[in-house]
């Protein structure tokens, strides 16, 4: 792996917010191109902060963040971000939302129409082009967000618990769709979640983080074969094995974060 230029490299990264809260402390993470890596940790441990730093939406207080061997300095082109909360523009319909990143890049109208229609078809939303987000279900809105991110072909996609607000069945479907879209695309994905099952089922590699301030506690390679189908992969004995090992690491962190949350003054 050392001979390949990493897609993302965090070296000794710390982030302290004004007011004293430390979200990250001495974090080292390297993500090879084309890999699907999950960051898992208790809720509110600072995983999302790591994504903001990679996206260039925020700056670290110590350490360096590099994307494709370049120091992150502001929002970079070629990085996509799927937010936990709904981030579609409510006043733009499905077509205009998916077209938005291309309009910002001032692509010709014809090219925009072609690519937007292609992606709307790929996320199975044909016929909904003129609907506003308020008229769509949670799962459909996520698919629009996915199309909006993929339409400008970023090489790196950061995902901040994108499916956590969906019901379990919709979530399984979305995870399968995500894997299908990612398969063979060469995209690098960093996926933040507090759900171990989701992390294992999707990823090539899982990084377990400590309760805030987040540090890297352990790393696991997930060698389950691809292509994967979410509901089947959970029945694989290796899945259970990995789950047990990771949960062992994670449990202490979850307990600590829970204890802190309930004993806070």
């Amino acid at each position: 792996m050392s001979d390949v230029q990493p897609a993302i490299r965090l070296t000794g990264v710390s982030k302290q917010f004004p007011g004293g809260y430390t979200a990250l402390e001495g974090v080292d993470i390297t993500v090879a191109p084309g890999r699907f890596v999950s960051l898992v940790g208790p809720s509110g441990c600072g995983k999302s902060t790591a994504l903001s730093l990679i996206a260039g939406l925020d700056t670290p207080t110590a350490g360096t963040v590099k994307v494709r061997d370049r120091l992150v300095n502001g929002v970079a082109d070629g990085v996509g971000f799927l937010f936990q909360r709904d981030a579609l523009l409510p006043w733009k319909n499905v077509f205009d939302n998916v077209a938005f990143p291309l309009v910002l890049r001032k692509r010709p109208a014809k090219e925009i129409a072609e690519r937007v229609n292609e992606w709307i078809a790929r996320v199975n939303l044909r016929g909904f082009e003129n609907h506003f987000p308020s008229a769509l279900s949670g799962g459909m809105r996520k698919r629009v967000a996915l199309a909006q991110t993929l339409v400008y072909e970023p090489q790196i996609i950061l995902m901040d618990e994108p499916f956590s607000a969906l019901d379990v069945q919709t979530r399984d479907l979305m995870e399968d769709e995500l894997l299908q879209l990612w398969q063979g695309s060469g995209m690098t994905i960093v996926f933040v979640t507090h759900d171990l099952e989701e992390a294992i089922a999707l990823s090539d590699e899982v990084v377990v983080m400590t309760a805030g301030p987040a540090r890297v506690k352990a790393r696991y390679d997930v060698t389950l074969p691809r292509p994967r189908v979410i509901e089947q992969v959970r029945l694989d004995p290796r899945f259970t094995e990995l789950y047990r090992a990771m949960w062992n690491d994670l449990r202490d962190e979850v307990l600590e974060s829970y204890a802190r949350a309930t004993s806070a003054p």
Binding site: F83, A87, L89, R105
Partner: peptide, 13 residues
Amino acid sequence: DPTLVASARVLGA
């Protein structure tokens, strides 16, 4: 909504 602003910036705004 600050998320909308962050999202637009990542999308290239």
